[in-house]
Design a protein around this nucleic acid. Sequence first.
DNA 1: GTCTATACCACGATAGAC
DNA 2: GTCTATCGTGGTATAGAC
Lengths: 174, 174
Amino acid sequence: MHGFHGTSMRDLAKAIELAPSALYASFPSKEHVLAELVRLGHEAHLAMFRKAVLDGGSDPADQLRALVHANAVMHATYPHIAVVVNDEMHVLNAELAAPGLARAPSGIAMLMDIIERGIAMKRFVARHPMVTAGAIGAMALRIPYWFGPSAGITIEELAAAQAALALDMVGVAR
Amino acid sequence: MHGFHGTSMRDLAKAIELAPSALYASFPSKEHVLAELVRLGHEAHLAMFRKAVLDGGSDPADQLRALVHANAVMHATYPHIAVVVNDEMHVLNAELAAPGLARAPSGIAMLMDIIERGIAMKRFVARHPMVTAGAIGAMALRIPYWFGPSAGITIEELAAAQAALALDMVGVAR
DNA sequence: GTCTATACCACGATAGAC
DNA sequence: GTCTATCGTGGTATAGAC
């Protein structure tokens, strides 16, 4: 909740009821703890993306719906790891960030691919693929900051609504 | 670039070529520096929102287009202050955050108002106003993290594209 | 692998001269 | 209002016993 610099090794140790020094038996430094979280998050995220696209079959609209739906479910179900992966990764130095970065481009690239394939197939009429992809990705990225039990909607309703919005954005008739 | 906890008073002092202690002549604490930035940012943001809605006239679609356009321009033109206001405000304690929070709800409330008025007037067909408002707001919030001179589009193109996407999301025909 | 103890350093903030 | 100098705290990380 307080970011990398706002969370101390003493905080981490207290949370798992260990002495601070015990952490160094598993991680060489505080940065390595974050790097491992980022790596795990990216791995899970990429696996989810791949599965969603497969589940979406061959129609770009179905693929986009499946991808946005799954992405929303993931961000609503695991908001903490989503925030760590998206917002804290940039504090890692190049070497430690590499294992995560190697997977990150695949996510946005898959979204862009679907959009551009949909346009090529005349299934979508998006006018600006990059801005559209950014807007679709942004919807999910903000979920951890407002969605919760008090939001008054279920995860399924949220995911379905965001999937519908994504289809609106690429010009697929409702 | 490194957040509140990742930026020291010594960093701030070096940036303006002053001794660290000289900062305390203007601000009682590091938190007060952030609070002032957040207050200024919220003030400017709210003024922009109000002007945009007025410029949009009485049609909800024109209002929404004007608001999203202006919001995108602001986030692309002043990305640093946008990040500070949106992402760092939460580290302030309740007392210091109050002047900013007093203005924050007005922004999202104005967006919700426009959407719900558009639905009531049968100008919009948005199915889920809250999720839609969140998605529209999210587009702008992410701008500082990807938009820049190397993005290959102008601020005007970006703003126009996001305004069009917002209209898509509320079901106004292109 | 865990503990206690501690080294070493950067942090926010203050004191007091100018 | 700015400086130099410094205080006290809490940070990451290590040493060495068990």
